[in-house]
Write a protein that binds this DNA or RNA. Structure first.
Lengths: 234, 234
DNA sequence: GGCCGCCTAACAAGCGCTTGGCCACGCACT
DNA sequence: AGTGCGTGGCCAAGCGCTTGTTAGGCGGCC
């Protein structure tokens, strides 16, 4: 609504709707180049991937539901209907983004747990993994924050809930292990503690800026300090 | 000819609209008796407040943008257009909910800071205040979580940003004070720490259940333990 | 010639909101 | 007692607009 980011090469290219004025020249000017050069038959569509990245950028700013297919098309300099040549629905776009993110995240999480070690080390690793995804997967995390309820209600995105459950088990197991070995306090609730850690990390996507004062490592270090030892001096 | 209408048209008119039957009980109680008793001219509309509460419940589940005026009207057993007899826009409904919440929150925050005391006590009080609003103001907090970006872009809701800034100053001031007196560690970033605390608290509205295992006090106690001293034993 | 990428043009459904009117009630006034 | 009238609550109908999606066609490249 408020956006209207678009650049104007589109004005020439799109040449608008009711404008009519002979489409013809339209194409010639804009995508005429296309310049996919010579070789490269574009494995599994290079254009498609580009569109996904454009969509991801918009999702990262406003979330999934708040982004319209016309927003995405505008950003790409095409019309909304043309998107359906590459995707069969708006949801399949976000599916591609989300499943990619979750595959990577779950693989990294499992590796960290399988590697073993002291609970403190494992949890440190998990925290670092999560913060580490903040930059490369901003879109997926934003969508996960804003549209979780909407998406998880659809069976297509059942993997969201499944992944969530699996991750929770990892964390709770590790926290309990730490309590047994006397490393962690007995008077904290494992499940509750996990939830708060999880939320604190992911919600950071709202104010985290890739080029900003703090990078993923700085955030992780800071948070782990507070998490393990608190903000008080001892 | 036209006279014939009188008796039942109202009852029929009540649950109209495509059969549907709506929420039933709502109506029966509603315009049938009307029963506003005798005196009580209903100061500033008692009906209106009821509608606000219904809307708040829906906002608490799905957020503001995801809730339609027809959802609200359905819940009340009336047609969407009828809502505009009480409110002049959908936004004025959420405004009522949000401004009420922020007035209460800010007053409590200011009181806690003005009361003074050790930074640890002040911060404890602030944390408890926030967790304490989770139950009575679920709707406002959910909206604040889901629709913050959309709302803060409109000047009508300028008080959101203003309040946010004021609260941040309170927290940062208090944290820095604690660092100066040697109570809090020097190696934490006040602003960053505040943000993480804030987010952790508010985001709890997603899984917090009023009748559940933990109430606001339980949550506060647990969180303050971890915040001040960490999850490790010492 | 076949495919890829895109346009044109529309669709049905849903959105927030408006307009105009009907009805029941309560108060005031004859 | 009756009449008149204001008012609060709602319905009926539909406005203009946006949403995701579809159908068919056209042009350039291998």
């Amino acid at each position: 609504m408020l956006v209207s980011v678009h650049f104007f090469e589109q004005a020439a290219g799109g040449n608008r709707h009711t404008g009519k004025v002979t489409t013809t020249s339209t194409n010639s000017g804009r995508s005429g180049g296309r310049t996919r050069a010579k070789g490269t038959p574009a494995l599994a569509s290079e254009r498609r991937e580009h569109l996904v990245r454009l969509a991801a950028e918009l999702f990262a700013e406003k979330g999934f539901q708040a982004t319209t297919v016309r927003n995405i098309a505008d950003e790409a300099g095409i019309l909304s209907g043309s998107l359906y040549h590459h995707f069969d629905s708006k949801e399949s776009i976000v599916d591609e983004i989300l499943s990619g993110f979750f595959n990577e995240l779950m693989a990294a999480n499992r590796a960290a747990v399988d590697k073993g070690g002291e609970p403190r080390e494992v949890i440190s690793a998990l925290v670092r993994i999560c913060f580490g995804t903040l930059e490369p997967h901003r879109a997926a995390i934003t969508v996960m924050q804003n549209d979780w309820n909407y998406l998880k209600a659809q069976e297509r995105f059942a993997y969201l809930t499944e992944s969530e459950d699996e991750v929770e088990k990892m964390w709770v197991t590790e926290i309990k292990k730490g309590q047994k070995t006397g490393l962690f306090r007995e008077d904290i609730d494992p499940k509750l503690t996990y939830r708060m850690i999880r939320d604190t990390i992911w919600v950071a996507v709202r104010w985290f800026q890739p080029g900003g004062r703090l990078n993923a490592k700085g955030l992780s270090d800071h948070y782990l300090k507070v998490l393990f030892d608190g903000i008080c001096t001892h």
